[in-house]
Design a binder for these strands. Structure first.
Lengths: 237, 237
DNA sequence: ACAAAAGTGTTGGAGATACACCCATGA
DNA sequence: TCATGGGTGTATCTCCAACACTTTTGT
């Protein structure tokens, strides 16, 4: 009967944020100088860490995200488990692992979660022991630690699927938003253009998008009607 | 920095099979007499086991399925990880765990895979050390070990999603099948009825469903045209 | 008055749905 | 000849895509 004496399980969180400038992902840097890629750049990675023995996976994802970035109260959804036996064995990752893990050679399986926030409402802060937390434009993400580029790609796919099927956009926008902002969000995430009038027709069918008695201010053109999401009418699964 | 000294990781396989009688799932029984539910019935479970230290998750799923049921060459797809800290702590599961595991109290996280086969082409056999392997009608599944009822429910949902979006039906039917059989399969899995003529119109659009120069034989009515899937034209992801 | 984005309806085509009868076979 | 499931076409409707001009504000 097969057995395994010990392996480690972690969660990695892919937190997406959006502003008028595009879709971003939250990456962290480690403090350790030694952790750099081939060209001497500090190595970035997704916020993630080993789970504790007595916590659930979802719980772990929330805790890890909070500990590393101070972000909490975010809708997190599991999308895939990554378990290649060599996923933490790459040379570039060794020295950092040796610095922070008691058993750096241990195999680690990780479960990926993704989440959505509005860049307007959240201001992530690095944990005391972390080097830095940054929003990186999806298009500008370089080589990441471990297999985090793969995980990120999986998360983007999951995000697109979710947005199309469940219209999970509300977390990505500020509490008040215009329909143009909403449309830009869809266009950015799904990487395609929509017709303005048709897009608005579809939005009007969504009962969870409600118009406010309020208009945009201080813009140099006709001010747009503001909308918000009604969280009551959204099913999260 | 959080750490965990040891926990276990397993894979569980939800293998679906189909015949004219309906959709089935492959369950195994343990040999141990002691493993029975409250009413004295032998406890069934999904084929699953701990992963080995040097194998990938997908690889593990294929191995475990083969070792426990002799089934191999099946399309397996990961759908969810289950990590509730108490998922193997239920009283009903204790005695069996004590019998087969060196560390029965260890927390176990499991990754679920589902697969599809035609009941006509596969004949699962219990592993030497297992008690039995049975196809159970989806509607007749009783209480299973651990959280396997939850995992099964997750797998059914994943199967439905896949069938709708990727038309992954080919593995569930025999190599040669009639359009009525295909329609019954869709109706069973998706739990809704289709109009015969409209259904056939849609099938004709699928280039991977090809008519054969062959008809049904020995039936007491007009013999149906036989079709088969052209595996070349199918993308598995 | 001009620039800049907001806002608004109609039409045509494609695709989905609804529906009923004849056909080939074995008993 | 009868019972059984196999096989076929058309009319309608709904949904989606395409498309252009007027409005409101700030400068």
């Amino acid at each position: 009967m097969p057995t395994n004496e010990s392996l480690h399980l972690s969660v990695d969180c892919v937190l997406f944020g959006y502003d008028d400038d595009g879709l971003k992902v939250l990456l962290i840097n480690q403090k350790e100088d030694s952790y750099r890629d081939g060209s001497g750049q500090p190595m970035s990675q997704l916020p993630g860490d080993l789970i504790l023995l007595d916590e659930g996976l979802h719980e772990a994802a929330e805790r890890v995200l909070y500990e590393l970035t101070q972000v909490q109260g975010v809708y997190l959804k599991q999308f895939h488990a990554y378990g290649d036996p060599n996923r933490v064995k790459d040379h570039k990752d060794r020295s950092w692992l040796r610095a922070v893990r008691t058993k750096p050679d241990q195999r680690v399986i990780t479960v990926g979660y993704f989440g959505l926030v509005s860049l307007h409402d959240y201001d992530p802060q690095p944990a005391s022991f972390a080097g830095g937390v940054n929003w990186i434009d999806i298009g500008d993400v370089g080589p990441l630690a471990f297999d985090h580029n793969t995980i990120l790609a999986g998360a983007i796919e999951a995000l697109q699927t979710q947005l199309e099927s469940h219209h999970i956009s509300f977390e990505l926008l500020p509490k008040k938003f215009t329909l143009s902002q909403l449309q830009q969000l869809y266009e950015t995430v799904l990487e395609k253009k929509f017709d303005k009038r048709n897009f608005r027709k579809n939005i009007k069918k969504m009962s969870h998008v409600v118009p406010l008695d309020e208009k945009q201010q201080g813009v140099t053109h006709k001010p747009a009607q503001l909308f918000s999401f009604n969280p009551d009418q959204i099913e999260h699964d």
